[in-house]
Design a protein around this nucleic acid. Structure first.
Lengths: 120, 120
DNA sequence: TGAACACTTGAGCAACTGTTCAAATATAAC
DNA sequence: GTTATATTTGAACAGTTGCTCAAGTGTTCA
């Protein structure tokens, strides 16, 4: 069997081979593309959006965030873990409570840029 | 049966009721939150990321984009529809071909802000 | 010690997303 | 008309995501 080719991919060079080559050469690296979409993906969920906005003013404990959003502690905690893994929030423990706050001003800039866009 | 309450939500006011009230009042509207996460969501996929970047230099037809990305025409076309629905790209038909180009400079700004972030 | 509290975590599940495949549409050339 | 090319579209399918529920950790206080 010959090396199977995906039929759906246009293989003709009739289009604009030079253009394709040039654009291909200037394409972002896989690493950049991956980190870029990962970055946007954390911001692309409404629960996380609300958490980030809530924390943009002041630090809050998990229970407070849960109250502000009207969501279960568990759901909030799961999302806080995502934000923690992405290093977007930091936390500090005080007795039984855990206080979260923002930990990445680049993301804040990006977030505000997005906010500006939807409010345009 | 009495009105069922979600048990998991912390209902005690022992935390910081005033803080919660204040943050709640300043919270983004549902509409803003929705549009914000929708905006970030379009950018949160690597195929769409690549398409946007490819189009940031010059207009390209579907076949060229497919060649640049090394993906099937169909997959590219599906994603172009998403970008079209979000008004992020525009297109022009020329004979059998369809040329796409960017159509939203706000998104370009947001995209570049994201790029700056991952390249920091 | 044990109960209460604040939070985290894992499993399970429904909803969503991106891709493939096959079929459809549209335009051009014969 | 038929054929070829460029693109779109719908269905199906696998993979991912975000929530709930229940059980777990760790700290405080009696």
């Amino acid at each position: 069997m010959p090396a199977k080719k995906v039929h759906d991919v246009c293989e003709v060079k009739s289009i604009d081979a030079k253009k394709v080559k040039r654009v291909k050469k200037e394409m972002l690296s896989d690493d950049e593309v991956g980190r870029l979409s990962e970055t946007f993906r954390v911001l692309a969920d409404s629960t996380r959006t609300k958490i980030i906005y809530a924390l943009s003013g002041e630090e809050l404990c998990v229970c407070d965030i849960s109250n502000v959003l009207g969501m279960s502690i568990s759901a909030v905690s799961h999302q806080l873990r995502v934000l923690r893994n992405m290093r977007l929030v930091k936390f500090r423990k005080e007795a039984k409570m855990v206080f979260y706050s923002l930990d990445d001003e680049h993301i804040t800039t990006l977030f505000n840029e997005g906010l500006k866009h939807v409010r345009e």
